[in-house]
């Protein structure tokens, strides 16, 4: 199968032509025959090396190899800055040398499957009793009542997160968790807290003049709740397997591998 055929089939399955900025085909020659397909969260250099080592030339990534995750963020010329950087040049040289084809469907996939990433993270956290709503990008789960810090340690261990940050009182007792991924906005946090039973919120990161102080004020306004942040990469990492399962289902007969790169952040 040609890479172009696989990409067209996946785009067709999502019902989206891939019109999103920083998405669709990122690099590579789609006229190439596929030697193997891999999926990942962050297309880091370590993941690219794994991809090559496993004989795959088509990589479907949740993140962006040149760090332009979303057009809502950063300067307009970020790509130019990265392309001109030492890392950007070396990464491009590696991609070209190994004839890698990298594709992103993140927005279309999130739109088609709004809580797939949250479900993947929730399962990685060890939660089993998941409650979903078709139009919401988060899931909730009832858990055994325990201290917030106990739960945070459990989540950190289960997701191999080294740099977990929290906003919470350590002894807060929690029994209902709302799980989302990536960047948590104030509106996103507010949506998760609409259910008055929710006392623990999990996500990737917050802007520290947006979601961070919003959650401080959640607590300041009397809500007994805590926020745990696994880090952006850790929160999206479980979607690698979700993507692999989806691609495998759509392109029957072709083996698809999920590639992983552990949490890049250390806590002091």
């Amino acid at each position: 199968m040609l890479a172009s055929q696989a990409i067209a089939a996946l785009e067709h399955a999502l019902g989206e032509p891939g019109q999103y900025t920083y998405e669709g085909l990122i690099c590579g020659d789609t006229r190439a025959e596929i030697t193997g397909i891999a999926c990942c969260a962050q297309p880091s250099m370590a993941v690219l090396k794994q991809c090559v080592a496993q004989g795959c030339n088509l990589l479907i990534a949740d993140g962006h190899p040149y760090y332009t995750y979303s057009p809502e963020w950063g300067a307009k010329n970020v790509r130019e800055i990265v392309d001109d950087s030492e890392v950007g040049k070396a990464k491009t040289a590696y991609i070209e040398q190994h004839k890698l084809i990298i594709v992103r469907f993140t927005s279309a996939f999130d739109k088609r499957y709004p809580n797939a990433a949250a479900q993947a993270l929730a399962k990685a956290c060890g939660f089993t009793d998941l409650h979903t709503s078709a139009d919401k990008p988060f899931v909730t789960s009832k858990i055994r009542q325990q201290s917030f810090d106990n739960l945070a340690k459990l989540v950190a261990v289960n997701t191999a997160t080294r740099g977990m940050r929290v906003i919470a009182k350590p002894q807060l007792q929690v029994s209902t968790v709302a799980i989302s991924t990536g960047m948590l906005s104030p509106a996103g946090i507010a949506a998760m807290l609409e259910d008055p039973a929710v006392d623990a919120v999990i996500g990737g990161e917050v802007v520290e003049w947006e979601g961070g102080p919003y959650f401080e004020d959640v607590i300041g306004s009397g809500r007994k709740a805590g926020l745990m942040l696994t880090g952006f990469a850790s929160s999206r990492e479980p979607i690698a397997q979700t993507l692999a399962d989806w691609v495998s289902g759509e392109l029957q007969g072709i083996a698809v591998t999920a590639l992983h790169d552990p949490d890049p952040i250390h806590a002091v």
């Binding site: 760090y67 963020w73 003049w209 952006f232």
Partner: peptide, 27 residues
Amino acid sequence: REWDSVEYTRDANELGLNKGLVLIAHE
């Protein structure tokens, strides 16, 4: 932002450039 600066640093190290990024709270 973690999806850019953290990922860039991760790649810099994978490429052998030996760079470190210390992150403190904005506050």
